[in-house]
Measured scan of single mutants.
Amino acid sequence: RRRVRAILPYTKVPDTDEISFLKGDMFIVHNELEDGWMWVTNLRTDEQGLIVEDLVEEVG
Rank of each mutant, 00 (worst) to 15 (best):
48 Q>F: 11
48 Q>T: 12
42 N>C: 10
44 R>F: 05
20 S>M: 02
8 L>T: 10
12 K>P: 07
13 V>N: 13
30 H>V: 08
19 I>C: 03
2 R>I: 06
54 D>A: 15
22 L>N: 11
8 L>K: 13
48 Q>D: 09
24 G>H: 07
43 L>P: 03
53 E>F: 14
55 L>I: 06
52 V>Y: 15
7 I>R: 11
36 G>A: 05
41 T>K: 07
50 L>V: 09
26 M>P: 04
2 R>E: 05
26 M>W: 09
46 D>I: 12
38 M>K: 04
35 D>Q: 13
16 T>I: 02
40 V>I: 02
47 E>H: 07
45 T>D: 04
23 K>R: 13
56 V>Y: 03
22 L>P: 02
39 W>R: 06
47 E>S: 06
36 G>D: 04
53 E>T: 14
51 I>K: 00
13 V>H: 13
19 I>E: 00
40 V>M: 00
16 T>A: 03
29 V>C: 02
51 I>C: 05
11 T>C: 10
25 D>H: 02
5 R>K: 10
39 W>K: 04
37 W>G: 06
11 T>P: 03
39 W>G: 01
9 P>Y: 07
14 P>R: 08
25 D>Q: 01
53 E>G: 13
29 V>T: 03
34 E>V: 13
12 K>H: 07
41 T>P: 00
2 R>V: 07
2 R>G: 06
19 I>K: 00
52 V>Q: 15
19 I>W: 01
53 E>R: 15
13 V>W: 09
4 V>L: 10
12 K>C: 10
59 V>R: 05
58 E>N: 12
25 D>W: 03
33 L>P: 09
15 D>A: 10
8 L>A: 13
50 L>T: 10
31 N>V: 14
37 W>A: 06
31 N>E: 15
54 D>C: 10
4 V>G: 02
25 D>P: 00
52 V>D: 13
43 L>Y: 06
6 A>Q: 01
59 V>P: 06
22 L>C: 09
10 Y>R: 05
34 E>F: 12
12 K>D: 03
55 L>T: 05
41 T>Y: 11
12 K>Q: 07
22 L>R: 10
59 V>L: 12
37 W>M: 10
17 D>R: 13
41 T>C: 11
28 I>V: 12
39 W>C: 08
58 E>T: 12
27 F>M: 11
9 P>S: 14
20 S>N: 07
28 I>A: 08
56 V>L: 05
6 A>K: 01
39 W>H: 05
41 T>A: 05
57 E>K: 06
60 G>L: 13
30 H>T: 06
54 D>K: 13
9 P>K: 08
10 Y>E: 01
43 L>F: 06
9 P>N: 13
10 Y>W: 07
30 H>P: 00
26 M>A: 06
16 T>S: 12
26 M>R: 06
29 V>I: 09
53 E>V: 14
8 L>H: 12
55 L>R: 09
20 S>R: 02
58 E>Q: 09
40 V>G: 04
15 D>L: 10
13 V>P: 06
32 E>S: 10
49 G>K: 00
58 E>G: 08
43 L>A: 06
35 D>C: 14
8 L>N: 10
16 T>V: 03
10 Y>K: 05
40 V>S: 03
30 H>Y: 10
35 D>N: 15
20 S>H: 03
23 K>H: 07
52 V>I: 13
27 F>C: 02
1 R>A: 12
38 M>N: 03
7 I>F: 07
22 L>F: 10
44 R>K: 05
46 D>S: 15
45 T>W: 02
26 M>K: 06
28 I>S: 08
22 L>I: 12
33 L>M: 11
57 E>T: 09
48 Q>R: 11
51 I>V: 12
14 P>S: 09
45 T>F: 01
31 N>D: 14
17 D>V: 09
54 D>H: 12
38 M>D: 01
20 S>I: 01
13 V>R: 14
52 V>P: 14
41 T>N: 04
19 I>F: 02
35 D>A: 12
30 H>E: 12
1 R>V: 15
34 E>L: 12
41 T>L: 11
28 I>E: 14
12 K>A: 14
53 E>S: 15
52 V>F: 15
1 R>I: 15
4 V>W: 06
4 V>C: 08
18 E>D: 03
31 N>Q: 13
31 N>M: 14
